[in-house]
Design a protein around this nucleic acid. Structure first.
Length: 194
DNA sequence: GCCTGGATTATC
DNA sequence: ATAATCCAGGCA
């Protein structure tokens, strides 16, 4: 497994989110295969934390891509994101589900469902906020042949008005570890990874 | 400073 | 359907 370079993350959030499906998220000895994620765009995206512009918490989203963004949601769950795009554009991708590399049917309950479980499975928390994925024990690696990927609306963003319906959620089609299913969406053409 | 409301999940 | 549990961000 080879670490993906900063350039991989320096692209648009929706592109990176699509390409991330099937990649491995690695933290020390733990490996999760990314099966579901969502793109959050800059200040114009009313679902994004970037909608208020750069703040103490979200300024990392406005930096160059390839850096972790970890935050606490509902006072209970830590959410793992990766900052994407060019310096200044305020994007990120939320990792919503990972699968155990050796658990082909996705039935391992310890790996569970939903974005709150991703951090638990990989041993991540807010200490990993702003961690540079280009070096160190936390990184993303290409893993296997890019799978068939579906797209659909993001989850839990009903407050975002018209942005709630935009197709910015990506998942490995028919993968059992996807957080909510069965899932409706359309299949996007497999793109060659950079 | 105070107040509101979550990019959720497990359980009733 | 609702509790759990905390803090960011807006507004005064």
């Amino acid at each position: 497994m080879t670490r993906l370079p900063q350039a991989f993350f320096a692209r648009d959030a929706a592109i990176v989110a699509h390409d991330l499906i099937g990649c491995a998220l690695v933290h020390r000895k733990r490996v999760g295969i990314i099966v579901e994620c969502e793109a959050y765009e800059g200040p114009t995206d009313k679902a994004s934390h970037a909608r208020f512009g750069p703040t103490k918490r979200t300024s990392v989203m406005f930096g160059p891509g390839g850096v972790s963004y970890v935050y606490l949601c509902y006072g209970i769950h830590e959410m793992y994101n990766i900052d994407t795009g060019a310096d200044g554009d305020g994007q990120a991708v939320l990792i919503r589900a990972v699968a155990h590399p050796d658990d082909d049917d996705g039935s391992d309950p310890a790996w569970g469902r939903g974005p709150g479980k991703v951090t638990k499975a990989l041993g991540l928390d807010r200490r990993h906020d702003r961690r540079d994925l280009a070096r160190g024990a936390l990184y993303v690696a290409a893993h296997a042949t890019p799978p068939a990927v579906n797209v659909g609306p993001r989850i839990g963003v009903a407050y975002a008005g018209d942005d709630a319906a935009r197709p910015l959620r990506f998942w490995w089609r028919d993968h059992p570890a996807v957080s909510r299913g069965p899932v409706a969406g359309r299949t996007v053409p497999t793109r060659r990874r950079r």
